[in-house]
Design a protein around this nucleic acid. Sequence first.
DNA 1: ATTATAATTGAATGTCTATTCAACTGTCAA
DNA 2: TTGACAGTTGAATAGACATTCAATTATAAT
Lengths: 120, 120
Amino acid sequence: MGRNEYLCDCNVIHPKVVEQVLKKMPSSTTFEHLAKFYKLLGDPTRVRILFALDQEEMCVCDLANVLHMTKSSVSHQLALLRENRIVKMRKSGKEVYYTLDDDHVVKTFEVGLLHISHKD
Amino acid sequence: MGRNEYLCDCNVIHPKVVEQVLKKMPSSTTFEHLAKFYKLLGDPTRVRILFALDQEEMCVCDLANVLHMTKSSVSHQLALLRENRIVKMRKSGKEVYYTLDDDHVVKTFEVGLLHISHKD
DNA sequence: ATTATAATTGAATGTCTATTCAACTGTCAA
DNA sequence: TTGACAGTTGAATAGACATTCAATTATAAT
């Protein structure tokens, strides 16, 4: 979409607040990248894949067995994670082995797990 | 969906790896909660809202102006964040003021911003 | 060569979801 | 009480997306 000055249907109530916050806001593309990163973690299957890969390097069949899912389904998700440089692959014979390619995933996990544990 | 033992269409290749990883895997519901948390952060509008609220407490109109969006659209997203205890609200006269209700959001932001800055 | 297995891929499908639109509630001011 | 404004809400729509299915590639073994 991109910004559209005419989309907003109401007036500013606290001009100073709006001005100050606008000054600090990063660019739209920054937020899009950020949201894309979180969205990649925002699926049960992908989170489980990443958690598993954080334990050990694994091939697709083993991953599928751990997750109780089809190879195809797992492979689709791995492709998505690969395209976004969150996992990387290594071929060996018939198998393809995956590992985490992003240090931040583990750190994000820690915070995320902390978050959900603090829920009644 | 829930787990289905018969969904997997391939054999285990490294039994020890699968066994070890399965041992460490948290429950399905844990992963669902985790994914839900990340999914909430996985939208450009919501990330911008949360970033703005991390700067200052804001009412809906001001937020809409900062984001260049309609009140309705912002309100819908705020409701979602409210239901999931990520923001909280305070009424004052005609206005409703929102603030962050989750310490982990800020920490998650730090990691996320670090992640996207490490991209070529 | 042929068969079997590991993995990927594209299309199709059904579900989820962000925004829009219109109607509505609640509060303040005249 | 009437009008204006802040905000919410439900339904509708259009786009995104996770899984399935079928076909395909690539490697290894017989």
